[in-house]
Design a protein around this nucleic acid. Structure first.
Lengths: 231, 231
DNA sequence: CATTTAAGAGTCAATGTGACACTATATTAA
DNA sequence: TTAATATAGTGTCACATTGACTCTTAAATG
C-alpha cells in the first residue's frame, strides 16, 4: 500500500475567449516528446514547490501562457488512466477559464514554441490534439455551454462597458444558436447584475444602445430556469 | 519540469444508501497513521498495477469494503493541495456511489478495523472525519441532492419491486423535504422508466399499491425541470 | 422636421409546476 | 351483503416562466 508510486499529476486549463464572433480556445504547440510538434492544451505538471493547490496550479499555467487575467476558473473533470500518456499512469485535472478578448498577445515562453487561439466549431477544434486533449476540450465545451445556458458567466467575457447586443451575441456565439432578446433581457434584469452607464451607437443612424457594466465581476447569477432553446 | 514528483493520488468514494428512513454513507475506521482510529471515507491510493483508470480504482475501493454492487458511480470533484495530508502534496478524486440497502453486511477487511453505515444529517455526519473528508462528504451530498432533484437516479437505490410510495420516500429522505406525490408521479411517467408488475399491500386494510420495476437500471432520465420545492 | 433603423418594452399562448380536492379499491368488521 | 376505512392514484386549477411575436421609442441623418 505504501509503494512510492509514479503517477504524474497535471492540470489542463481550457481557456476560452470570444473574438471575430467565434469561440476560441488557447492551444500551444508541444516542443518535446511525446506528441512533439502537436497542438495541446496549455497544461502541465503540478509543481509541489510552486503550487499550493490544484486551483493555483491551474492559475499558474494560465498566467504562463497569457497575459490576461481570468474572472472565472472552474474545475471540469479529472481523467486518469494507465494509457492516456505513453509514459505511464497519469492523472490530469481539467479546468475551464474565461478571459476577455486578448489585446496584447500571448507569451510564447515556457516550453511552448508556439501559442495560438483556435476556433471551436460544432465538433471542437479542427486540428488534432495531443494525448486525450480532444476529449478534454469536448468536456470543457459541454460544461461551458451548460453553464452559459443557466447562469450569467458569459457576461464575464465582455470588455466593459458593453451593450445588450454584445451580451446577446456572446450567448449566441457560445451556445451556437439564436437566443431570444426579450428572454435574455428578462433573465439579466432579474439577476440585478447590470448597471447602466451612458450611451453610444454602434452603426450609423439608429437608436443608440444603453451601455452596461457588471456590478460585481465575481458574482455569477443562476437563472431560475435553463434557457430552453427554440420551440 | 521532469522532476520525479511525489504526489500521492487517491480515490475517495462516498457510498450512499438509504435504510431506516435515513440517508447513510459508508465509513471506515483508519488503523494506520495519520488519523489513526479516526473515521474516514473508504478510499485509498490508486494502484498503478491494479487499476486501469480512475473509475475502476473507485470501483475497486467500493468492492473492497462492501459486497453490494453499484448502479451508479459519478465523479464529484478533485481536491489537491500541499496541506490536506500531513505527509505532503496529495490529490484525491471524489466519487459518489449509490448502492441498494445492504443485507449481508460489510467486510471489515483491507486495512480497515471497522466499517459502518453512518447517518447523514442536515450538516453531514455527526462524527469527525480524517483529513478533509468532511468537505468531501459535503460536496458529495450536495451533488447527490442536486442530481436527485432533476433526475431519476434515486430510483436506483430501491430494491425491486417497489411501490410508488417507496419512490416518493427515497426522494424525500435524500432531499430532506416533502415532495408532491402528483408532481413526482408526472415526472416518472414522462420518464417512461417504470414497468408495472403485480400488486401488494403495505399495511392492513387499505388499497394495495402497484408494484414497479425499472425498465433499465443503467438509464438515468433527466426531468425537463428541476423540482422546485414548496411554494 | 420627416425618415430611418435598431433598441427595447409590451403582449400572449404554451408549458410545466405545486397545491389540493377528489375518486378508486382491497380489506375488514358489521 | 354491505358499509366503513384508509391509503392509492387521478383530476383540476391558479400561478410562474418561457419563446415568440408585435409595437413603441429615440437619436441621427439629410
Amino acid at each position: 500500500m505504501n509503494n512510492a508510486h509514479q503517477i504524474q499529476t497535471s492540470v489542463d486549463p481550457v481557456i476560452f475567449t470570444v473574438f471575430d464572433m467565434k469561440l476560441h480556445i488557447l492551444l500551444v504547440k508541444r516542443n518535446i516528446e511525446p506528441y512533439k510538434d502537436c497542438w495541446a492544451l496549455p497544461g502541465g505538471l503540478v509543481d509541489e514547490k510552486l503550487d499550493q493547490d490544484l486551483h493555483s496550479a491551474a492559475l499558474r499555467k494560465l498566467k504562463e501562457k497569457t497575459n490576461v487575467t481570468t474572472h472565472y476558473l472552474e474545475q471540469v473533470e479529472t481523467l486518469g488512466s494507465a494509457s492516456r500518456d505513453p509514459r505511464g499512469w497519469s492523472v490530469t485535472v481539467v479546468y475551464f477559464a474565461l478571459v476577455t478578448v486578448p489585446e496584447e498577445n500571448l507569451s510564447a515562453a515556457h516550453g511552448a514554441s508556439e501559442v495560438r487561439w483556435e476556433e471551436v466549431g460544432k465538433n471542437g477544434v479542427a486540428v488534432p490534439l495531443a494525448f486525450d486533449h480532444e476529449k478534454l476540450v469536448k468536456a470543457a465545451v459541454e460544461r461551458l455551454r451548460a453553464k452559459v445556458s443557466y447562469t450569467t458567466v458569459a457576461a464575464g467575457l465582455l470588455a466593459e462597458p458593453f451593450t445588450f447586443l454584445d451580451l446577446q451575441n456572446i450567448h449566441e456565439i457560445i451556445l451556437n444558436r439564436k437566443v431570444e432578446k426579450k428572454s435574455l433581457m428578462r433573465r439579466y434584469e432579474s439577476s440585478e447584475l447590470l448597471t447602466e452607464v451612458n450611451e453610444t451607437r454602434k452603426e450609423g443612424r439608429m437608436r443608440p444602445a444603453k451601455l452596461y457594466r457588471l456590478k460585481d465581476r465575481e458574482t455569477v447569477h443562476y437563472f431560475v430556469r435553463t434557457m430552453e432553446g427554440p420551440r
